[in-house]
Amino acid sequence: MRICAVTCVKNEGPFVLEWVAYHRLIGVTDFLIYSNDCDDGTDALLDALVPAGVVHLPNPAEGRNYQMEALKDAARQDLVTGADWVWVADVDEFPNIHVGDHSFAALIEACGNPQAISLSFQFFANDGVETFEDRPVIGQFCRAHNPDLWCDQSAIEVKTLVRRDFPLQYFGAHRPFARKSRAPESWTDGAGRAVPGPFLSAAKPRRIRKFPAAGARRFATLNHYALRSLDSYLVKTERGDVNREGRVFDESYWQERNDPAWEDRSIQRMLPALEAEIAALRTLPEVARLHDLSVQAHRAKVGMLRARPEIAARAAHLAALPALPPGEAELIAELGLAETPR
């Protein structure tokens, strides 16, 4: 079975090896990775990862809508059209599969081999980690929001694994869109349940095109490390969004994703195998050197940013913000839920 992962990157050099290694462990055979405007060596590192199944292309965007233009191009690439399954995700997102051998194949079997499987986000908090460390992200961050809730909502965004015969009109960043003339035969959540009709038909406006997360994680969830360390978040805000030009990572972005109410270390069962796979990738020609150079560039960028008084003040402000995001306390009270795991 061939599974192709598609993503877009900009200055993600320190995190590429972990993401590729992890996805190889869960069954991804091919990677189609688009890059734009990198100055930390990410592009050179991707070129060196060709023996690991990576195809690296410059982002074809002309209108600066980087992700959607790349996905439009990806749908025509042989690596994607020849795959049995396509997984569109970002390099801070890791499928945490709870069944079988924790692979995509085990998830597909558990869900009954549908045409698409949508995994609910679980945002992992910064939880007071200030300093960037060159070690697996999945081993550094273990606290998240109540995974059934996010801010003032009980419906959470997803990312989707898509089978070859899905009646595709186009790939979206979070889910595929089907041709109007033909509906998908089967589409499940991460518990193998059919997704709700309004989600299936994309009947709602984009901002609320989600479905309830409660009960959706029986077989898998999607660990999303959107913040990482405060150091790396400062670099992220300076870099801008890989998906589209002009997006601002303001304090609401931080606070909405920095709720550490629940502890979840389940993905860390993958750490021994992940560290071994990273070590194996580092033996490929030039990979270790280029990874280390990207780490040096990341640390240099952190030092440059923290030396600016306005950035130092912003970092202190972010670190001092309340952990519970706006609206969540009210929703917890309304639903009669506990704020911490039962």
Rank of each mutant, 00 (worst) to 15 (best):
D127G: 01
V137Q: 00
F104C: 02
S118Y: 03
D127A: 08
A110D: 03
S181P: 00
F104P: 03
F177I: 13
A106E: 10
Q140W: 00
L161T: 09
Q115M: 13
D165L: 12
Q140H: 09
V158Y: 05
C151N: 08
K159N: 11
A125L: 04
F123M: 12
A106Q: 03
P176A: 03
Q169N: 13
A144L: 03
P184L: 13
D134Q: 08
Q115E: 15
F141Q: 10
F121P: 07
Q122G: 02
S118K: 09
C142F: 07
A178W: 05
E109Y: 04
N146M: 08
Q169S: 09
G128H: 09
H145S: 14
R182I: 12
V162D: 05
P184R: 06
W187S: 07
G112V: 09
Q115R: 08
A105L: 08
E130V: 13
L168P: 02
A173M: 03
A173K: 11
G112T: 08
V137C: 05
F166Y: 15
V137G: 01
S103P: 03
Y170I: 14
K159H: 09
S154G: 00
V162G: 04
N126K: 00
A178H: 14
L107P: 05
F171S: 06
A116Y: 03
V158E: 04
A178L: 12
N126H: 02
E185A: 14
P147F: 14
F104S: 02
P176K: 11
G172F: 04
A116P: 01
D134A: 13
R163K: 10
P114W: 04
Y170V: 08
F104N: 01
A183Y: 02
Y170D: 02
A116V: 05
K180F: 11
Y170Q: 12
F123D: 10
W150S: 15
E133N: 11
E157H: 14
R135D: 07
V158H: 10
Q153C: 06
Q122N: 06
A105V: 05
W187K: 01
E133D: 11
G139K: 01
R163F: 00
H145P: 03
Q169Y: 04
N126I: 02
S186V: 08
F177R: 12
A106G: 15
W187E: 11
G128T: 04
D127N: 08
R143H: 15
E109V: 15
N126Q: 01
L161Y: 06
N126Y: 00
P136T: 06
T188M: 09
C151H: 06
A144V: 15
F132K: 01
R163M: 05
N146V: 04
L107F: 06
S118F: 06
S103A: 11
